[in-house]
């Protein structure tokens, strides 16, 4: 049980070849830029297709030689390095975007439940007061909270965080570290966090792997 991935993917510079499994908590993938960390996340999320391998969450196969579940059906939350908040939508619309794609959203009773949950998440992440603002008009730390809320409001099976702190300045980082530490305990979603910063790895890792040239060291 838990999360298992075995990924082989040929890139221009090297071949990514990793295999690992973890049960719960936060798995940190640490490594320098260009080590193949984001490729691993992209393969797990379905944004890239591995050349071969297997990806499983519990007993559900996301990818193997016979199966390749499309990214939109994988139910994996992804926080991108620069957050990728839609600039043409308010914070609230960003948060509700994933919820509105859920089939349950068409059911009136379930829709209310989903919207209530989105409201609760906005409260939890202290972004309710920002809901009518556009991403260009909020701070770096706020963007990070919005992006994290957007990724987990759809109740994903797995959360992928691609260098979530790298776009923040040093002072904001310290505050966000504290916030993330408290969120981490309450999230309860298996998470893969990638970073090149050993300190972040120390702070958040329940389990850790180090990558170099596409391989686990």
């Amino acid at each position: 049980m838990g999360m298992y991935f075995k990924i082989k993917k040929k890139l221009a510079q090297f071949q990514t070849d990793v295999e690992y499994s973890f049960d719960k908590g936060v798995l940190v993938i640490q490594g320098e830029s260009g080590a193949g960390k984001t490729t691993v996340l992209n393969c797990i999320s379905g944004l890239k297709t591995p050349d071969e391998g297997e990806i499983r969450i519990d007993d559900m196969v996301l990818f193997n030689e016979k199966t390749n579940i499309p990214v939109k059906n994988r139910r994996i939350g992804y926080l991108f390095q620069d957050y990728a908040l839609f600039p043409n939508m308010t914070v609230e619309k960003n948060i509700l975007y994933g919820i509105k794609n859920k089939p349950e959203y068409r059911d009136r009773a379930k829709r209310k439940e989903l919207l209530d949950y989105a409201g609760y998440m906005m409260e939890t992440f202290r972004i309710s007061h920002l809901k009518k603002r556009y991403p260009a008009n909020i701070s770096g730390g706020e963007k990070q909270r919005v992006a994290l809320a957007r990724a987990i409001v759809t109740r994903p099976r797995l959360l992928l965080l691609d260098e979530p702190f790298s776009a923040l300045d040093a002072r904001t980082k310290e505050t966000v570290y504290e916030e993330f530490f408290s969120f981490k305990a309450s999230l309860g979603i298996p998470t893969i966090l990638i970073t090149h910063d050993p300190r972040e790895s120390e702070l958040f890792a329940d389990d850790r792997i180090v990558m170099k040239d596409g391989k686990i060291m």
Binding site: S45, G46, L47, V71, K72, N73, R74, R75, I76, G77, Y78, F80, D82, A84, F86, P87, Y97, G98, N101, K102, R150, A151, T154
Partner: peptide, 17 residues
Amino acid sequence: DETYCLAARTLGSSEWK
């Protein structure tokens, strides 16, 4: 920026949407 489209895909959106 293609990342917006990738983000929308991970949020369960169809290509049409």
